[in-house]
């Protein structure tokens, strides 16, 4: 069960450990609190409305996802080859296809209504 990529990178055996420091966790936590507060303040108080509100909501949600990936899940620290990152990206492409494809097929084609 030896790993094939041993040849390029000496694996210290800790490839699977979560790293991160108190600093990165606290920073991530503060960022996600801020990113949750922004839409709450802007949207619930009707400071932004209409399509702009949707954009604010989705952008802050995606940013928060990125914050969690880097500060909590330590995606950046994966060693090469970055299989985990590749599978994640592929999975996200498929999730987007499922959501956008379904909406396109089911909603924006008036024949189906």
């Amino acid at each position: 069960m030896a790993q094939h990529h041993d040849t390029h990178a000496p694996h210290g055996g800790d490839a699977h450990e979560s790293h991160g420091s108190m600093k990165s966790y606290v920073l991530g936590f503060v960022l996600s609190l801020v990113l949750t507060a922004i839409p709450l303040i802007l949207v619930l108080n009707d400071i932004v409305t209409g399509n702009a509100a949707d954009v604010v909501l989705l952008v802050t949600a995606v940013l928060q996802f990125v914050v969690q990936l880097f500060f909590f899940m330590h995606l950046k620290e994966e060693k090469k080859p970055r299989y985990n990152l590749m599978v994640l990206l592929l999975g996200l492409v498929i999730v987007l296809t499922i959501v956008a494809g379904s909406i396109w097929i089911m909603k924006y084609n008036m024949v189906s209504h």
Binding site: G20, Y25, S32
Partner: peptide, 12 residues
């Protein structure tokens, strides 16, 4: 959100 943070502290 807080629990996600504290689970990180557990790992630390």
């Amino acid at each position: 959100l807080t629990s996600s943070f504290t689970s990180g502290l557990a790992v630390l």
